[in-house]
Design a protein around this nucleic acid. Structure first.
Lengths: 212, 212
DNA sequence: TCCCATGCGGAGCACTTGCTCCGCATAAGT
DNA sequence: ACTTATGCGGAGCAAGTGCTCCGCATGGGA
């Protein structure tokens, strides 16, 4: 069964080399453009930058969404990987947490398409890379919590929402007031420390608002 | 000179009543739609809701931008006014600050067009309403600072950026995790209190990673 | 070298959206 | 009632964008 027919129905198993090259060029160009301009970009711009025609682009990625997802999965994976590494290298749990935010906000908050989709970490982390990132933050949270440095009751979702929130602040201030967000980060991190009088409101951690 | 010509060139000083009615209907409908869907909405939708034709809409507001600005000015003014009132009513400066954030995030973070434009408070507060809102926050900041409750070095811009940042968090979590942002607000407000060891980084540098 | 399955390019279609144009309706002054 | 400046409606234009179609080029097996 697994024997390939010799001549009549020669199914090619591997794509042609130019097709592979083109596919990579498309992803590369798309990554650039998505980082710069977000997912609302014109598909023609991606085709232009990758030196490829529309037909080629749409054969490799039948929907714009397919291309966007491919790129986002790749970039989120890269991010998660580097974040995990940085977290491992860090001396103590608290340093790991602060370093993570610093790195994330310095390096990835400029990636517009990533920031646009980061909110999905909270709703539906279906994209593989997003899930990986979530796992890293979960670990950071657990470690900082275990050492008693993190304010009791702070959850992974809190840290994620803070990331999304600050990511937006970075995008807003990036051009007109560079690194102004750094002050906000300090403020938020201090609010995350354990030395506070009152506990956090457990408002609706689990969709809490009482049902009608 | 100021005498109006009697019949040949009767310049009407006041517009026709139906024109006034239409204009108001347009603004009303636009305010609704902009709050729900943001400024990227189709102009036809506004015309439809206000029961008016495209021609009418574009005579009153030659550019879509004109209509949007008119609505935003109105809504920002309303917001600033109610915020000012609430701040005056508050018992102490800190309560005024927390109440402001609560009210802003509960009531105005759902206004999509307002949130989209709130970032302008930091860059170019040319819209009159935005400037008014900035003044309110300036007062809140000054009062809380004077009583020593606010962390030294915190500026009006910090409070504004926090507002923008949290506003985004509200929009993100509004549907899937209602009021989850409340926890983030508590964290941030605690970070704003005066009882912290280290001072805030004075804007740029700090941030560890050395400049080239 | 020859052949053809596989892949390529980009004009063009379908739809959206900001804005205009112009024939028709009517408020309001006489 | 009559007139007309003022205002109205909505079809339609122009530009942008996702996606398709089809004639042509070519990698790679023989």
């Amino acid at each position: 069964m697994a024997v390939a027919e010799p001549r009549t129905t020669t199914r090619r198993r591997t794509p042609r080399v130019d097709a592979i090259r083109n596919r990579e060029a498309i992803v590369e160009a798309a990554a650039e453009v998505l980082a710069e301009q977000g997912a609302a970009v014109d598909v023609r711009e991606i085709a232009r930058r990758s030196g490829v025609g529309m037909g080629t682009l749409y054969r490799h990625f039948p929907k714009k969404e397919d291309l966007v997802h491919t790129v986002l999965r790749r970039d989120f994976m890269t991010w998660a990987e580097s974040a995990r590494q940085a977290a491992i290298d860090a001396e103590d749990p608290w340093a790991a947490l602060t370093t993570f935010y610093q790195q994330a906000l310095t390096g990835y908050a400029r990636h517009r398409a990533i920031m646009e989709n980061l909110a999905l970490t909270l709703a539906e982390p279906d994209l593989e890379g997003i899930h990986q990132l979530r796992l890293v933050i979960e670990q950071l949270c657990a470690r900082a919590c275990a050492t008693g440095l993190l304010r009791p009751g702070v959850t992974t979702d809190d840290l994620l929402l803070l990331l999304v929130s600050l990511g937006h602040a970075v995008q807003i201030t990036d051009e007109c007031r560079p690194r102004m967000w750094n002050r906000l980060l300090h403020i938020s991190l201090d609010g995350l420390r354990a030395d506070h009088r009152e506990p956090l409101p457990c408002d609706s951690t689990v969709a809490g608002v009482s049902a009608p």
